[in-house]
Design a protein around this nucleic acid. Structure first.
Lengths: 216, 216
DNA sequence: CCATGCAGTTAACAACTGTTCTCCCAAATT
DNA sequence: AATTTGGGAGAACAGTTGTTAACTGCATGG
C-alpha cells in the first residue's frame, strides 16, 4: 500500500510539480504541441528519462496542467456570479475578480486560452469538459437568482455559456494588456463592464417578447 | 522590372499556394509553433531548400495564412451585419452565413481560432490587427442602423466587439460539431441565435438607464 | 538489519530538424 | 543568338528529438 506521506512520495510529487512548473513557464512562449519532453526535463533540472516516472507523454502533462489551471479557476467563477449586492456593483466586482485572478495566475490563464483551441486533441477535450462543468454550475447559480424567475432551463444554460465565454475573453484581454500600463487595464475594465451590463439589460427584458408575457 | 504575368511568376505563385495549402492541412492536427519547414515542403512535394524562395520562415508562412484566412472572412462579416430585414430574420441569416462559411473554409476558421491565442507572437498580432479592423467596420455598419440613434461611438465599438467575439465563438462551435451529425449543428444554431437575440434585446433597452433618457 | 521497490541517472540509438553551399536548367532579358 | 536571372534540387552540417536499456542509491516494509 502507498502511504500518503513519507519522504519518498513527497519528493516524487515535488519533482512532478517542478515538471509542471517548468512546462507552464515554457508554454508562455509556445504551444503545447511544440513542447518537447527533453525541453521540459532540462528546465526542471532532471534527466530526460525521469520524465516517464511521472507522465506517459507531454500530452499527459498537458492534461494534468488543465486540472491544475482550472482547479484554481473553479472557486473564482462561483464567486463571480454570487448574487450579492446591486447589479452595477456586482459587475464591477466580477471584473475585479477576473483581473485579480489573471494577475495571480497569468500562466494558467494563458495556457487555457491557448490550448482551448490548440493542437492537442486530448487537452482540448479536457478543457472543454471542465468549461462545460463551469457552465452548468453558473447555470445553477443563475437559477437561484430572483431575476431568473420564469426562465427555462435551456435559456439559463445559454446565458451561462454567454457569461463563461465573456469571462474568458475578458481574462485574455487582461493578459494582453501590459502589466506596466494601468491605462490599458482601465480600458479593458471599462469595455468589459459595459458588455456585461448590456448582457444584463438583455437579461432583464428577455421575457418581454416570450410566451411568459401571455402573447403568442 | 517584374512583369505581373509570365510563365515564371505563375509557376512561383502556384508552388507558393501549394505550400500554403499543405501547411493549412497539416495545421488541422497541430499548432503553428510545432509546424516544421521540412514537414511542409514534404507535403507540398518540393525540396526543403525551395521553401526559402517563398518565405523566410514558417512564422512568415503563418502571417501569410492569416491574410488568406481573414481575407476570405472579410466579406462575410460585412454581410452579416447588413441591415436588411426584420430583427429575428437577420439573426437567423447571420447564423446561416457563419455556418456556411465554416463549411466552405473549415481549415481557415480552425487556423484563426487556434492561432488567435497561439504560441507565435507575430501571427497572434497579425490576427489581432485584422480583427480590430473588422470590429471597426462592424462599428461603422452599426452606426448606420436606426437602432443605434443616440449611441456614443465608444458604446458602438464595445457592441461591435461583442458581436465579433460572438461570431468567432459560434464559428468555432460549428467547427467542433461533427459534420455527420445535423443534430449537433442544430443545437449550436439554436443556442447561438438565442445569445444573439439576448444581445439584441440588451441593445434595444441600452439607453434607458443613461443620460440620453434625461436622468442624472 | 536486510531485501525489495522505485525515483533518478547515464549511454546509446535512429530519426528528424533548420540552414548553408553548390549546382542545374528553363524562362526572361538583351 | 547569347547572356542573365531565379526557382528548384541535392548533399552535407551540427543539433535536437523521443525512447530503450542497464545502472545506482536510498527510503521503505518485513
Amino acid at each position: 500500500m502507498s502511504h500518503t506521506s513519507g519522504i519518498r512520495q513527497a519528493q516524487k510529487q515535488k519533482t512532478r510539480q517542478a515538471l509542471l512548473d517548468a512546462a507552464l513557464e515554457l508554454l508562455e512562449g509556445q504551444s503545447l504541441s511544440s513542447l518537447g519532453l527533453r525541453e521540459v526535463t532540462r528546465a526542471a533540472g532532471i534527466a530526460p528519462t525521469a520524465f516517464y516516472r511521472h507522465f506517459r507523454s507531454v500530452e499527459d502533462l498537458g492534461v494534468a496542467l488543465v486540472e491544475e489551471a482550472l482547479g484554481s479557476l473553479h472557486p473564482m467563477i462561483r464567486t463571480t456570479v454570487s448574487p450579492a449586492g446591486e447589479g452595477e456593483e456586482r459587475i464591477a466586482r466580477a471584473i475585479e475578480l477576473i483581473a485579480g485572478h489573471v494577475d495571480a495566475h497569468p500562466a494558467h490563464v494563458r495556457f487555457i486560452a491557448r490550448e482551448r483551441h490548440g493542437g492537442v486533441r486530448r487537452v482540448r477535450e479536457a478543457i472543454q469538459e471542465q468549461l462545460a462543468r463551469f457552465t452548468a454550475e453558473v447555470g445553477e447559480a443563475l437559477a437561484g437568482d430572483a431575476e431568473s424567475a420564469g426562465w427555462s432551463e435551456e435559456d439559463l444554460l445559454m446565458l451561462a455559456q454567454l457569461y463563461v465565454d465573456q469571462m474568458l475573453i475578458t481574462a485574455s484581454l487582461f493578459l494582453e494588456a501590459p502589466a506596466s500600463s494601468p491605462g490599458a487595464r482601465e480600458r479593458v475594465s471599462k469595455v468589459a463592464s459595459r458588455q456585461l451590463r448590456l448582457i444584463h439589460v438583455g437579461r432583464q427584458h428577455w421575457l418581454e417578447g416570450t410566451d411568459a408575457a401571455g402573447g403568442r
